[in-house]
């Protein structure tokens, strides 16, 4: 059984069709990259998979572990193991990061019928994962993402991924706005979480990230469709000749 199966997916936003028939599948244990020029529909795909309101599926289907994903609320999807790292993580002043992590983790556990973690268990788990991402203790005591640098926000997203242990992780332009050191740190955080029962979908504009996170498959998204798929070499080809050439050939 495929972890994620997208078949002929059409999505409209405010009446305008953005995704025009995407077909794509991600098996367990694989990491796929979706690359594409600006406006190709990359973020629309990630928001649709996470269940954001206003992204209307007009045709096709999305199966997650064999079940229809599009019928579920965003929080239900999260509880079932779908995680989206946002391109622009939202600043939430007034909610302490550690409190947020505890509330979110326990909401997911509760929804799955698992025992909730107490404060000590959450703290232990957060600390373990934070250290590897070079996230200092005081960042956890600050309001969520408020005043965080671009790199800090992206690291916080990866920390959540580590903490929530999703089955399917979608990373939307996680490399944008990162300098080379931050990029390496984030990439090693992602690599550490590759696992046989986990699928990862990396959405990116640049090939750069794929120097550090080597994908099993690369898909090129243009004009709301997957126009080419291939192995890791496809990313290098894109880097060399640009999207224009690849999209034209398709």
């Amino acid at each position: 059984m495929k972890l994620l199966e997208i078949d002929d997916l059409h999505v409209s936003v405010q009446g305008k069709e953005i995704l025009k028939g995407i077909t794509l599948s991600v098996p367990e244990g694989e990491l796929h990259a979706i690359m594409g020029p600006n406006g190709s529909g990359k973020s629309t795909l990630s928001y649709t998979l996470a269940g954001r309101e206003g992204y209307e599926v007009t045709r096709g289907q999305v199966l997650y572990r064999g079940d229809d994903l599009t019928a579920l609320s965003p929080d239900r999807r999260a509880a079932l193991g779908v995680f989206l790292a946002l391109q622009y993580p939202v600043e939430i002043p007034g909610v302490v990061t550690l409190t947020f992590l505890k509330v979110a983790l326990n909401a997911q556990r509760r929804a799955r019928g698992e025992q909730e973690f107490d404060a000590v268990q959450v703290l232990r788990s957060v600390r373990q994962n934070a250290a590897a991402l070079n996230i200092p203790e005081d960042m956890l005591k600050r309001p969520l993402n408020a005043g965080f640098s671009g790199g800090e926000k992206k690291r916080m997203e990866i920390l959540q991924m580590a903490l929530f242990e999703p089955r399917l992780a979608i990373l939307d332009e996680t490399d944008s706005g990162l300098d080379i050191d931050a990029l390496r740190l984030v990439a090693s955080g992602v690599n550490a979480q590759r696992a046989p029962d986990r699928g990862i979908l990396v959405i990116t504009h640049y090939q750069r990230l794929l120097d550090y996170i080597v994908p099993d498959r690369v898909h090129v998204l243009a004009g709301g469709r997957i126009v080419r798929s291939g192995g890791p070499d496809l990313a290098l080809e894109l880097e060399k000749s640009g999207y224009g050439a690849v999209v034209e050939v398709a």
């Binding site: 509880a79 946002l86 939202v90 939430i92 909610v95 909401a107």
Partner: peptide
Amino acid sequence: ALFYLRSRGIPEEEAKRLLIRA
């Protein structure tokens, strides 16, 4: 903000409460 919290598994009503409290 509401979508962000919900995408982390926090149900809608609880997410709203958290944001209002914040």
